[in-house]
């Protein structure tokens, strides 16, 4: 670990690569999140209707339908199927996230990401240590509960309280008291559980993680030999358990590609590494044959 006086995460990277390069994926991500939100807001705020709707379903320029497959799946559980445009939107979104990584939705699109990232950042700055323990698989139980619950109640169940759609819809169609739910998520992540919402509870993230189970685009640690064990990547990573097999798997013949579907492809590990260990790549660049890698415990579901 660096002996620098500044122990802040990423300080080494800033010193080694400069502030811009040590934050470029974070900046790209924030720019993307805000640009997407901006496109949605351009209509209601400026009367420029490029995109109509919200993250559940949107219609761009009268040609491109995009539908949230998770909401449609809940609706399907109640016995209702989408119309043609809605169905086309599902196919497009599924194909896109399968390609770039399912949880790219979480780190590059979802508006709650900014909220929970802020909570995580503040938690580090304030040095809040204690955290309630909750297994990371909880989100898959949540996912199952929302789907089963939709079938039993006949209501698109998670949308009654989903903070993701509430925040996004609130920003575009009028916030009302939706901010209370968003604040609750922020405070939960800050005081109750580190990375609690996105990392353990949110069924939307769980669903998108499953979509990206076999995504070709992955973060890899090709220069893992250069790792100086500063632990900065583990500190900033919202799903730190995904890093270990890729970064430290040389001895056991694992990696260097991060294959775990919980990885959000946020690229923050690339930013904060002063040794440039990580980079974006594909899952096929793995040192091992793909068949062997997928049989690896690191890639097995339930292990993240």
């Amino acid at each position: 670990m660096s002996m620098a006086a500044d122990k802040r995460v990423g300080a080494d990277a800033v010193a080694a690569k400069g502030w811009l390069r040590a934050n470029r994926w974070l900046l790209a991500r924030r720019a993307t999140q805000l640009a997407i939100l901006g496109l949605f807001l351009l209509g209601p705020l400026a009367g420029l209707w490029i995109v109509k709707g919200n993250l559940a379903y949107s219609y761009t320029l009268g040609i491109l339908p995009l539908t949230d497959p998770y909401v449609v799946l809940q609706s399907a559980m109640t016995g209702h199927l989408p119309e043609v445009l809605g169905a086309v939107g599902v196919v497009i979104v599924l194909a896109f996230y399968w390609l770039v990584g399912g949880r790219v939705y979480c780190s590059w699109v979802c508006p709650v990401n900014i909220v929970t990232d802020s909570a995580g950042w503040l938690r580090r700055r304030l040095g809040i240590k204690g955290s309630v323990h909750l297994a990371r698989e909880t989100r898959y139980w949540m996912l199952a509960m929302t789907l089963l619950g939709s079938a039993l109640t006949g209501v698109v169940l998670w949308e009654l309280i989903n903070p993701v759609s509430m925040l996004h819809r609130g920003l575009i169609f009028g916030m009302g008291f939706a901010w209370t739910i968003v604040l609750a998520v922020f405070l939960f992540d800050l005081f109750v559980m580190s990375r609690g919402w996105c990392g353990r509870l949110c069924p939307v993230g769980a669903f998108y993680g499953l979509i990206g189970r076999f995504s070709p685009v992955r973060v890899s640690a090709p220069a893992r030999a250069a790792c100086n064990d500063c632990m900065d990547c583990f500190e900033v990573c919202p799903e730190p358990q995904v890093i270990r097999p890729a970064l430290k798997g040389a001895a056991s013949g694992t990696g260097p590609v991060i294959l775990a579907s919980a990885c959000t492809n946020c690229g923050r590990c690339i930013d904060v590494c002063s040794k440039d260990v990580f980079r974006f790549g594909t899952r096929f660049n793995n040192a091992l044959p793909v068949s062997e890698a997928s049989g690896d415990p690191a890639a097995a579901p339930g292990k993240f």
Binding site: K52, G53, A56, S75, S150, G154, V156, G170, F173
Partner: peptide
């Protein structure tokens, strides 16, 4: 309540601003 996905497209395409989406 099972079929509506709360996207607000009907609200957007209503020329008279009749419709609105329910807030929490």
């Amino acid at each position: 309540l099972g079929a509506c996905i709360r996207c607000g497209l009907c609200v957007r395409d209503c020329p008279y601003d009749t419709l609105s989406l329910a807030r929490p």
